[in-house]
Amino acid sequence: AFRKVFMNDFNIRNARIIDGSGGPVRQADLAIKDHRIVEIGQVGPAEIELDAAGNCLAPGLIDTHAHDDGAFLKHPDMTFKLSQGVTTVVNGNCGFSAIPMDNSAEGIKASGGILTGIESGFTDLEGYFKTVLARKPAINNMMLVGHNTVRSLVMGTQRRAPSDKELSTMAGHVEKAMEQGACGFSTGLIYRPGRYSETEEVIELARKAQPYGGLYTTHMRNEGDKLLEAIDEALTIGREANIHTHISHHKAAGKQNWGKVKSS
């Protein structure tokens, strides 16, 4: 039987396109083929045609600071993100991540509570991604490996420096996560047990993410009276580990500290 061949797989017509380039909004059609945008403007016929009726069409937003590790397991439709135009999130922030995991009560606690009430079964990032994908998530999920989680699994909440063996074990967790697709290493040095770590410990662990092109992202040790010292520490870690560094919350808490953000 005769089968009509279409130029495109999917067209969105009559859209007000905001492409993120900073240019003006324009009225146009958009064509998709093999899951890729192939043309914007006047486009040929497609197997599926959608009339946008003058509504806006824009690239999906990327939420670079999320704590949705567990939400992908509980709410894979991720409606609360999609309804805001978010199509990609970065999880594992502030030193707390779903991985590594040992499925004990203490292991769940190590995640900072983001896996509370969830029966996971996974222990590493590969297993986490497999579990998430089985639920057919509606949006993309990038993962950081969290310092607080790693430290809790290896040392609990002990207020001391790690032994050489403990530091090596922590480094192994970070390196394994990076090998399995993590986008970087995060800290929450204002929280327990991260606040018990010295700068050198963090540098050593951040170095394990660097060869993979990973990012070091931090909820700093202080956002108030010692904000400037905390920023100095973050920059020192970035320089010493030779890794791209992102400060998650750059603010000055407390009226007496107003103006310090500018100073920093």
Rank of each mutant, 00 (worst) to 15 (best):
K4C: 08
F6D: 02
D9Q: 15
R16Q: 14
G20E: 12
G20C: 12
L30R: 02
A31E: 00
R36T: 11
I37V: 07
Q42C: 06
V43P: 02
I48P: 00
I48D: 05
L50A: 07
P59H: 13
P59V: 11
G60V: 06
D68R: 02
H75C: 01
H75N: 04
F80S: 01
L82K: 13
V89L: 13
G95W: 03
I99E: 04
A105S: 13
E106S: 14
G107L: 08
K109T: 08
T116F: 15
E119F: 10
F122C: 07
E126R: 13
F129E: 06
F129Q: 06
K130V: 09
A134P: 06
N140Q: 11
L144H: 04
V150K: 08
R159T: 08
R159C: 09
P162M: 07
L167C: 14
A182F: 14
A182I: 11
I190E: 11
T218V: 05
R221A: 04
K226G: 11
K226R: 12
K226Q: 13
L227Q: 03
L228N: 15
I231M: 05
L235F: 05
T236Y: 09
E240G: 07
A241K: 02
N242S: 13
H246D: 12
H250P: 07
S263R: 15
